[in-house]
């Protein structure tokens, strides 16, 4: 039993090893949880593909402290993000915003799907046209009849 318990404890230790240090945390748990949510959406400018909430970089820590400081001084979540965005640009947001620069990013997948649907639709219409059965003309019927008759008479001899 003790072995299982220590195993579970050992496995859950990495989860507890977060970058946010106790001295950074706010006493107000509501503000602290807001800070954590904001931190998860901000990119660490040193490590690039990590949010500042889980980064141990110095700048990430500074930004975490800044987020908390702004929250304590009464900023809304949006204002805090805007404050940091004004200094580090759109790049600091892990979720790219929708603006003129990112239209391609947001709408290209939709465009590609539309093009794909178009291509498939055209191809299908073509295939359907081909499979329409045609009635032979009288002349063709006569020709085939003639050919079959010839073939039959050839076989018998």
């Amino acid at each position: 039993m003790l072995r299982y318990f220590s195993l579970i404890l050992a496995l859950s230790l990495p989860l507890a090893a977060l970058a946010v240090e106790p001295d950074e945390m706010l006493d107000d748990s509501a503000l602290e949880s807001r800070a954590r949510e904001i931190s998860k959406e901000l990119r660490c400018v040193v490590c690039l593909n990590q949010d500042i909430d889980s980064s141990n970089a110095g700048v990430a820590r500074d930004l975490r402290l800044l987020v908390r400081e702004r929250l304590v001084s009464g900023d809304s979540d949006k204002e805090v993000v805007a404050f940091i965005q004004a200094r580090y640009g759109d790049y600091v947001l892990l979720k790219p915003p929708l603006n003129e620069k990112t239209y391609v990013l947001w709408f290209a997948p939709l465009g590609m799907v539309a093009v794909a649907i178009g291509i498939v639709a055209v191809a299908m219409r073509k295939r359907r046209k081909k499979s329409v059965p045609k009635v032979l003309s009288d002349a063709e019927e006569r020709e085939i009849k003639q050919f079959i008759d010839q073939h039959k008479s050839g076989e018998t001899t």
Partner: peptide, 13 residues
């Protein structure tokens, strides 16, 4: 010393 001016300048290192 706090790195706050660094943030104002948007430096990453």
């Amino acid at each position: 010393q706090s790195g706050r001016a660094g943030i104002e300048w948007g430096i990453s290192g």
